[in-house]
Amino acid sequence: MEREVRAAVMTGSGETEIQHLHLPDIGLEDGLLKIEAAGVCGSDVRHYRAQITEPRILGHENLGRVVALGSIARDRWGVSEGDRVLLEEYLPCGHCYACRTGNFRSCWATDSLLSPTAIRFGSTPLQIGPGLWGGYAEYLYLHPRTVFHHVDERIPAIEAVLALPISNGIEWVCREGQLQPGQTIVILGPGQQGLGCVLAARLAGAKTIIVVGLERDAKRLEVAKELGADVVFHGVDRDLIELVYELTRGEGADMVVDTARGSDETVGLAVKLLKKHGQLILPTGAPEGLTQFPVSLLAKRCLTLRGVRGHSYAAVELALDLIGSRKYQVGKMSTHHFPIEKVDHAIRLTAGEFPEQAVHVTILPDLALPDLEQGSVRT
């Protein structure tokens, strides 16, 4: 095996440099993954725009093949060399209350948003050994606390990496939100998370699935329709409110999921769309926070506001089963594929910085880079 590997290293805000890094030595409790595909998530956009002092490799939607494995790791993980696996981004401790109750995504050891010492795939700095923490590289280090999912060989790589965004939708809509058969759901935002909610709503047996976007979201709204949305909408809020109440015979929606922004505008709209005893699912939040939240309506209309984040192990397994069933046109979500040298472009495309619109972008390390595109690599 080669001892140096290519990696797209984030060296500063909005800056990527292609570097050659050393492969780590593998001991009894860890391993090594050869990356087959790595998805680009909205959180990668947020990380890429952040000011950093320590270089890192982004990419936490990682699919690959186990190529090296310690004997203790083999017994602990239940995997073998050659296995095709999908990784969760979390590296939980395994013994805290959150881990023991099945909520390991909330473990402080891996909660990088709330704990300064946490580690996880896709955001941990290079200086924390052995450095290969992100999927935008040829190989990924397998930490002793890695969480694995076996992946059917028949599932295309560009679809398998969609399991994490789809599992978010399953977690929020089905497992935490408990959407029931026959209910109506409104999904604000037709990005990859919103589309995951569309698939989740279909699994739950929703009567009516309404997806709301902006005029520039035409392509994403089209994909939402192909995945099972009954109504897609872009226009003025007043017309949307009238439409929802018309479709629900004056009752309003049972659930609204705000994957768009979590701002005064979107949350205020969501509350207006909900029926009495309805539920607002909030997986996001605007940096400036909420300044005009209609608190009085929570009690008056018996509404539930549920903050959600990430996915459970069960949700990822359900997502892989959904993809493998071939019942849904999941491949429609995968719109763009790039080699490692184009990571900067891939993240910026996901961020909406170009006229062309993407739904889900995938990095494929073995994909050849056309000579004519070499000049667009940002260094």
Rank of each mutant, 00 (worst) to 15 (best):
G134S: 09
T259H: 02
R326W: 02
T11W: 07
V211G: 09
I72T: 14
L214I: 01
R105V: 08
R3I: 07
A351S: 10
S123L: 06
A137M: 03
V85E: 03
E89P: 00
R76L: 08
N168E: 09
I363V: 15
Y245P: 09
E246L: 12
L298M: 14
A314Q: 15
V257C: 12
V186H: 07
G205P: 04
I18K: 09
H345C: 00
V66I: 15
T362N: 05
E356W: 00
V231E: 12
P144R: 10
D371E: 15
E226Q: 14
A200S: 06
S112K: 11
G191D: 02
D254Y: 08
Y245M: 14
V343H: 02
M1V: 05
L63Y: 02
K219C: 01
D239W: 00
A218S: 13
V359L: 02
M10F: 06
A358E: 06
L372V: 13
R145V: 04
P287S: 03
E88V: 00
L114W: 09
A200Y: 01
L142P: 05
A50P: 00
D152W: 00
S112V: 15
H360E: 08
V40F: 06
R326F: 04
R326E: 11
S43Q: 07
V359I: 14
A204R: 06
L243A: 11
I170H: 09
A50H: 10
I209F: 09
M255H: 13
A118I: 05
R306W: 00
G228D: 06
G289M: 08
K332I: 05
L269A: 14
L86G: 06
E153K: 13
P144D: 13
A98W: 08
L32D: 03
G285I: 00
A346T: 04
T117W: 03
L369V: 08
A160H: 03
I323E: 03
H150W: 00
T362R: 04
R145Q: 13
A368W: 01
D25Y: 06
L28M: 13
I363Y: 05
F354D: 10
A218V: 10
G70K: 10
I241G: 07
D254N: 15
I210A: 09
A224Q: 02
P156Y: 08
V161K: 01
E159A: 01
F148L: 14
E88P: 03
K276L: 10
V5M: 11
I209K: 12
A315P: 03
H234L: 11
S312H: 08
E29T: 14
V66M: 06
A218M: 05
V85A: 07
L69K: 11
A68N: 13
R326Q: 09
E242M: 12
W172T: 09
V232W: 02
D25R: 14
P365V: 01
S115N: 15
A163I: 07
E226G: 05
L113T: 12
E89L: 13
R301V: 06
D254T: 02
I26Q: 12
G189H: 04
E171P: 02
L87R: 04
T284L: 06
G70L: 13
E159T: 05
E2M: 08
F121I: 03
L372N: 14
V330K: 01
F293E: 07
Y328R: 05
T53H: 13
G31H: 06
M333S: 03
D258R: 07
A358M: 10
